[in-house]
Computed example of a mutant assay.
Amino acid sequence: MTGRRTLEFMAKPYRARWGVRASNAWMRTVIRAGLPIWTFRVLTVPGRRTGRAIETPLAVFEQDGRRYLVASYGTVNWVLNLHKEAAAPGCRLPSVPPGEGA
């Protein structure tokens, strides 16, 4: 191997900026107050490391009587937390490959 560096191109990890965090806080408050916002619901899942309850507003889509959560920004923290929680006995969280879902 020569001393040259090899560049690897990977997607930049998504990090919510202050505007997104402020919008999420507002949506959590409104949804908890009972005011409907389209198909949004608040997902509460324990954090992977701390176990502290993490709340994230998400859109729930229904197709053929089944409900779907869509990870618009890829494998972000709420997805990782949810997958870890789904590993608990009695919990089922199937992944649907892109293009095969609703």
Rank of each mutant, 00 (worst) to 15 (best):
L43Y: 05
R66F: 07
R4H: 09
P13G: 06
W18I: 15
F40L: 14
S72T: 06
I31E: 00
P36Y: 04
L93K: 08
P97I: 03
R28P: 03
V20L: 13
V42S: 00
A16E: 09
P89M: 10
R41E: 06
C91M: 07
G90P: 09
A87M: 10
P97R: 06
L82F: 04
R92D: 15
T6H: 10
R66Y: 09
L93G: 09
I54A: 04
T50V: 13
E62S: 15
L80W: 05
R21T: 06
S95W: 05
S72R: 04
E55G: 02
L58R: 01
V96N: 05
Q63P: 00
T50G: 14
Y73C: 10
M10Y: 06
W38N: 14
T75Q: 10
W18F: 12
N81Y: 09
S23R: 11
A86E: 13
L82N: 02
T29H: 03
A86Q: 12
R66S: 04
R17G: 15
G19N: 11
T56Y: 02
A11D: 13
R49S: 13
F40H: 09
T75L: 02
A53E: 10
L93V: 11
R5S: 11
N24E: 07
T2A: 11
A25M: 07
R15S: 07
M10F: 06
W78Q: 00
K12M: 10
R48L: 00
R5N: 08
E8K: 14
T44Q: 11
P57D: 03
K12A: 14
E85R: 13
P57S: 11
V30Q: 01
A25L: 11
P36H: 07
Y73E: 13
N24K: 00
F61A: 15
L80T: 06
T6P: 01
A71M: 05
V60A: 11
A22I: 07
N77Y: 04
I31W: 02
R66K: 15
G74K: 03
Q63H: 12
A16W: 01
A86Y: 11
A22V: 12
A86L: 12
P97D: 07
V76R: 02
K84R: 11
V76W: 00
V60K: 09
